[in-house]
Computed example of a mutant assay.
Amino acid sequence: MAQEQIMKPETAAKKLGILLSAAPEEFRNEPITRTAFDEIQANPPEWLAELRRTGPHPRPVVAAKLGVSISGLARAGVDDTMTTEDIKALLTEMPAWLVTERSTQAEVRAENVRVKEQRAAKASAE
Rank of each mutant, 00 (worst) to 15 (best):
M1T: 13
E4H: 10
E4R: 12
E4Q: 15
Q5W: 12
Q5D: 06
M7F: 14
M7P: 03
M7N: 07
K8P: 00
P9T: 07
E10M: 07
T11K: 01
A12W: 10
A12F: 11
K14T: 13
K14V: 13
G17W: 01
L19S: 10
L20N: 08
L20E: 00
S21Y: 03
P24W: 05
P24E: 02
R28T: 10
N29L: 14
I32P: 03
I32V: 15
R34Q: 15
R34M: 15
A36C: 11
F37A: 04
F37R: 08
D38E: 15
Q41V: 15
Q41S: 04
A42I: 01
A42W: 06
N43I: 09
P44L: 10
E46P: 01
W47L: 02
L48H: 04
L48N: 07
L48M: 07
L48Q: 04
A49Q: 09
A49I: 02
A49H: 00
L51T: 10
L51M: 15
R52I: 03
R52V: 03
R52H: 09
R53S: 14
T54Y: 07
T54S: 13
G55A: 02
P58F: 10
P58E: 09
R59I: 12
R59D: 05
V61R: 01
V61I: 15
V62K: 09
A63I: 11
A64E: 12
S69P: 06
I70Y: 02
I70T: 14
A74C: 01
A74S: 07
A76M: 06
A76W: 02
G77D: 01
G77W: 00
V78A: 01
D79T: 15
D79Y: 08
D80P: 01
D80I: 04
T81F: 11
T81W: 04
M82S: 05
T83P: 00
E85R: 10
D86K: 08
I87N: 03
K88M: 05
K88N: 08
L90E: 11
L91H: 07
E93R: 06
E93Q: 09
M94C: 02
A96M: 12
T100V: 10
E101S: 00
R102A: 05
S103F: 03
Q105I: 00
A106P: 04
A106Y: 03
V108N: 00
E111N: 08
N112V: 03
N112C: 10
R114S: 03
R114D: 06
V115D: 07
V115S: 01
K116I: 06
Q118E: 14
R119F: 12
A121E: 14
K122R: 12
A123Y: 04
A123H: 06
S124R: 13
S124L: 11
E126P: 03
